[in-house]
Nucleic acid binder design. Structure first.
Lengths: 294, 294
DNA sequence: CAATCGATGTCGATC
DNA sequence: GATCGACGTCGATTG
């Protein structure tokens, strides 16, 4: 496919708000938020009507280069040797590796350069320079539907809050304000002795980050409580210390160690995901085995 | 395009390890680490040779449904009414909206179901059921090149380590072991007074997580030092406390507050990204302004 | 707009 | 394979 044809197709997609798919041999440059990159090969370029700009390789899930919604896309036909970097790199690679397959640009050949720019949070530009095209096509996609997801952390937390007895008898939810200036706690509760309990729920293996997060919440709550209560005996405060409970299907060993050093508790969470909503199957307190106790 | 043709194309892509692009009207279901359902709409399906499976809508960067590398892809032609959900939803939508354009499946119409399965870490299945196709094509992508990224955190950390004087006179690197059981520290150094310094570098705005990470490192180092040094006076330990320095271009207010509460230090990092490598332009200690000091 | 956090995060490095 | 942290993370929620 000719580069000029490709340009026409892409321009049409931009003006008509269509999905554009381009496959070809190209080099990509990015300069912006922080990093700048360079590479060459066969790629898939996806341009969505909202400006989303994705450059994919033939493996991996993530796009190798991208620009988010809102990017301004433009095209240009340019002489290959106007771009010194491209030419230089190309020459080097050609000498190094293969001279047979004519994939790279030749002398005086043209490039179709597709550019995606964004200025909003930071000046960002991504340039895709095609030297040959396998395909360039546009499509009109009608799709207003949004995804319905089951088994999110939020859903699990709501479920657990409705049945805190799973954790311990006498535990009840406490929905004063669940949001603090720093971060939000999953569930705030009170146990049968009236002690404040911060509950953090994770839908997958909990790591150190989950523990530090819980530590932060517990600390905040403690300060809060101190401020509220009479600022007298420290011993009493200790006895009435805020409890922190981490609920997760698994926990990494280091995280468990840190958790216990901090005096917090881990509950193993067993759940399953069914259609409209997930379901909590069990919750069981776990501690280090006695064998490990020295 | 006929569904049967589409099936042939996709099957061919799978057996020949090609990139496959499919555009059509479909419904998507997923069950695995979570579960989800996406009602009907026009979407782009990308199948890569390594099994990567991406379902894109016409906006947003991220795929709405996906499966990572290693997924096993298969196709199947199926009667539409075998899938109750699909049939029901479709019927509703048709009545509600349009009857003219024949986008949806008709009575007794067929579906092209593309399935991506994975069993390894967890059983996961994603099913895309097309009732009509706009396009289905395959491409051979040769691409051995990997990305070169400049300005990564690692690169910046290496640069900074080579010139710790930027932070403070007399600061020098200390490359004992930078890895601990929990996490790794970016730079370990010693100041002119011989105090241990943990330096955490972030290439972008530092948030609470960055601070908690640094807190963790400093605590580890303190324990370590206690173990090494004579376990005597606590006062001395305090005077010799391990310092923690956070270097980042920006820091959120809450993070700065927490940092100072923990007795750690923030340095504003100024850097630029040039071609082969980034460059550190400046580093300046910042504290809360006196006006804020109450 | 900034700040924060979840995610079917994904990806790479290291143990 | 498990663990851990970075990421141009993305995307959503909330003040």
């Amino acid at each position: 496919m000719h580069l000029e044809q490709g340009k026409t197709v892409i321009d049409s997609a931009i003006s008509q708000q269509q999905l554009c798919l381009v496959v070809g041999h190209c080099q990509v440059k990015y300069k912006g938020r922080a990093a700048s990159k360079l590479s060459q090969g066969d790629r898939l370029l996806v341009i969505k009507p909202d400006g989303t700009f994705l450059v994919h390789q033939n493996s991996k899930m993530a796009a190798i280069n991208y620009q988010g919604p809102g990017a301004i896309v433009s095209t240009e036909i340019r002489k290959a040797d106007e771009d010194a970097d491209v030419a230089k790199v190309e020459k080097t690679r050609k000498t190094e590796t293969e001279g047979a397959k004519n994939h790279g640009p030749q002398k005086d050949s043209m490039l179709l350069v597709v550019k995606a720019e964004r200025k909003k949070p930071q000046e960002e530009v991504i340039e895709v320079a095609f030297d040959s095209l396998q395909s360039a096509q546009n499509f009109s996609l009608q799709d207003d539907e949004s995804l319905k997801l089951f088994g999110s952390e939020r859903q699990l937390a709501d479920l657990l809050e409705q049945d805190l007895g799973l954790i311990e008898k006498g535990m009840r939810p406490l929905q004063t304000e669940s949001h603090f200036n720093k971060g939000a706690i999953d569930i705030l509760a009170q146990d049968k002795d009236g002690r404040l309990v911060a509950i953090e729920l994770k839908r997958r293996t909990a790591g150190l980050d989950a523990v530090t997060q819980l530590v932060r919440y517990v600390k905040q709550l403690s300060h809060r409580k101190d401020a509220k209560a009479t600022p007298d005996a420290n011993a009493q405060n200790k006895a009435n210390r805020v409890r922190g409970i981490l609920c997760a299907p698994e926990i990494t060993p280091n995280a468990l160690t840190m958790l216990e050093q901090e005096g917090l508790e881990y509950f193993k969470l067993d759940y399953e995901i069914s259609n409209p909503s997930a379901k909590i199957k069990g919750l069981q307190k776990k501690q280090k085995m006695l064998e490990e106790f020295r």
